[in-house]
Write a protein that binds this DNA or RNA. Structure first.
Lengths: 193, 193
DNA sequence: AAAAGAATATGATAAATATCATATGGGACG
DNA sequence: CGTCCCATATGATATTTATCATATTCTTTT
């Protein structure tokens, strides 16, 4: 059934990528099949290759999309904060219970980080670009923005955020999860450096 | 071919678990098949279920083994350090180029962290236990050992270590990898809190 | 309103994979 | 020295999965 052909091919492509960006964060690169994504997008698996050259090409687009969403959401959160509190708001959102429990709409580095080294070059390239953007977002919100060492500081801040969230999700003990998020938040908030 | 039956079943079980502990850190939980592990252990896939009730049971044993190796290696590194420098040595080893490039004999949290939330309960339970042990190793090496907040400090240190290594491995740019490791090392070394 | 064209569904194929049943060969013990 | 047992290999099955070829239906155009 040709379904609704008024939804142009481009729009369907869009929808698949958007869906995939969510599904990979929920199920991982390796845990996501082409059929899974198509089903969740309301399509059947056969049509997939009318939209993408390969599964990997599609993962690359999905990874890029997930990264772009994270960057723009972070930018918005920081922009909505009162002056001087951009980083604070960012940290509070990132290290929140809500982010902990909703990987599919959250940071793709936390959701997919340890699978990245095994992905296709196109996937890693897209992810790296978005990670650099994310680090810049953090750097611009830091109190020491412009000073020497500010970029290094942003690198460490990003690492702590990602590590705390990954560990909090990995662990089977909600007390420890909370403690990890709280420890990271409290140690990053008072501009420790 | 009964192969060498003098190697008791127990020893073979041991060898499979040991092999699996390496393979999962290299290929991920989802990227590792039963046949992969058996082949790398020098066996054929068919015999697997004489040793484990299921693939998941085996992953649980492998995760536990990998965690145990990491804890004992870390303990040894810290013990070999001059007095007051245990944490320093730990950090230098963890955030080294060598660790970056050898996930299969390194920290399982960095290698498998983002896949953990989807693993079987037995796997997560084992991993959580080892993670707690790892945090204790770090806490005992900290200069503020015993003081209030020392445990929280260890949580944040662990998060930063894990996050920096995961990001450094994820990224497709060796300059950024180095910068991430260096930033984490320099900011954790001078006992920032 | 019918024909053409584009988008998607159906169906098929080949490879991988978890799991299980049975065969085989080497060592222990009589 | 021959028999039995146990660990492992062989082989099979059912499922999943990536990929592709073909059929079907919707929309547009005349």
């Amino acid at each position: 059934m040709g379904r609704t052909a008024n939804q142009s091919k481009e729009a369907t492509h869009e929808r698949i990528v958007e869906t995939a960006a969510r599904v990979i964060r929920r199920s991982g690169y390796g845990g996501t099949s082409v059929a899974d994504i198509m089903k969740e997008a309301g399509l059947t698996h056969g049509g997939f290759y009318a939209h993408f050259a390969s599964r990997e090409a599609m993962l690359a687009e999905a990874a890029d999309r997930a990264g772009a969403e994270a960057v723009s959401l972070s930018t918005r959160v920081a922009a909505d904060a009162p002056p001087e509190q951009g980083l604070d708001w960012l940290l509070r959102a990132y290290l929140s219970e809500e982010h902990l429990k909703n990987p599919e709409i959250g940071c793709p580095v936390a959701a997919l980080g340890s699978e990245m080294p095994r992905q296709a070059p196109e996937v890693r390239r897209a992810a790296t670009r978005r990670i650099k953007e994310m680090i810049d977002v953090i750097a611009r919100q830091s109190p020491d923005w412009g000073q020497p060492g500010a970029h290094e500081n942003a690198l460490m801040t990003a690492a702590t955020m990602v590590g705390a969230l990954i560990m909090a999700r990995a662990v089977d003990d909600s007390k420890l999860s909370d403690a990890l998020l709280k420890a990271a938040l409290e140690h990053l908030t008072p501009a420790c450096a």
